[in-house]
């Protein structure tokens, strides 16, 4: 099974119905993608497939043949977002954080609060009440565009 993982072509031998989540964690040894529910509700396992956020617990690896898969380990060009998650309190226990950041990375520049709330509705966080996450995404959005911090 060939696909591009974080910019590199990988070839994985796995049952085509094995969850992408398990292939990433077990076959590719990338454990930054987390399992919170196994039913696509919590978003902790969010990765990007061809640039779109998906819950990797609901994706058979057979369906990413030839696709571009990006995980938290391969997230480039979003350092400002990651740093803002630290400084604004967007990460507490951290288990939802990789998935949350992956989804947030698909937002356009300078998203409004409403856009952030809509985009992140598929990522559950039980620690923060989401406030720190909104502030982190907004801060990173402004930074990216040279706005005032």
């Amino acid at each position: 099974m060939r696909f591009t993982l974080n910019g590199k072509v990988v070839n994985v031998r796995a049952h085509p119905m094995k969850r992408l989540l398990d292939v990433l964690r077990e076959d590719c040894h990338l454990t930054g993608t987390k399992e919170g529910c196994g039913e696509g509700e919590c978003g902790a396992c969010t990765v990007l497939v061809n640039g779109a956020a998906v819950t990797s617990c609901l994706v058979p690896v057979g369906q990413v043949r030839g696709a571009r898969v990006t995980t938290i380990e391969g997230l480039k060009r979003h350092r400002a977002l990651q740093e803002a998650f630290v400084s604004e309190g967007g990460a507490q226990c951290g288990i939802c954080t990789p998935g949350m950041i992956m989804t947030a990375s698909t937002l356009g520049p300078s998203p409004s609060l409403d856009e952030i709330r809509s985009a992140l509705a598929g990522n559950l966080c039980r620690c923060t009440g989401y406030g720190g996450i909104y502030r982190a995404v907004q801060r990173a959005g402004k930074k990216k565009h040279g706005g005032r911090l």
């Binding site: 696509g40 978003g43 956020a53 998906v54 609901l58 809509s118 985009a119 509705a121 598929g122 990522n123």
Partner: peptide, 9 residues
């Protein structure tokens, strides 16, 4: 329907 991850799939 769902969050954007579900809408994408």
């Amino acid at each position: 329907i769902g969050g954007i991850q579900i809408q994408n799939r």
